[in-house]
């Protein structure tokens, strides 16, 4: 599969990475190269193979429903680039 400029623009937008127009063409070439290399996987017949999302045979462990965290507004917001009164701040959002 080779990707074109429009596809790169679409996925860059999905990933929220600003890409300048002049970067689209080289990126499309680069990504197409990688995708073509990846496509050797199509040589393998996997029709009967169940996908493997995790290497574990284990079962998900559960924790008890108790309050063990919170009450640390300062720590949570300490690294924030912008904020006030215990809130994070972002450019105004119009919903």
């Amino acid at each position: 599969m080779s990707v074109d400029k429009a596809t790169v623009a679409r996925i860059a937008h999905l990933a929220r990475i600003g890409v300048r127009d002049e970067e689209l063409e080289p990126l499309a070439a680069e990504l197409s190269g990688i995708l073509q290399w990846i496509e050797q996987l199509n040589e393998v017949d996997t029709a009967e193979v169940p996908p493997m999302a995790s290497v574990h045979d284990q079962v998900l462990r559960w924790r008890g429903d108790i309050i063990t965290d919170g009450g640390k507004q300062d720590e949570i917001t300490a690294n924030a680039p912008d904020g006030e009164n215990g809130f994070f701040a972002v450019p105004k959002v119009i919903e």
Binding site: M1, I38, L41, N42, V44, T46, V49, P50, P51, M52, A53
Partner: peptide, 12 residues
């Protein structure tokens, strides 16, 4: 075509 395929290869 990609992600699921890769997870199957991973199993193999």
């Amino acid at each position: 075509a990609y992600y699921l395929k890769a997870q199957k290869i991973r199993r193999l």
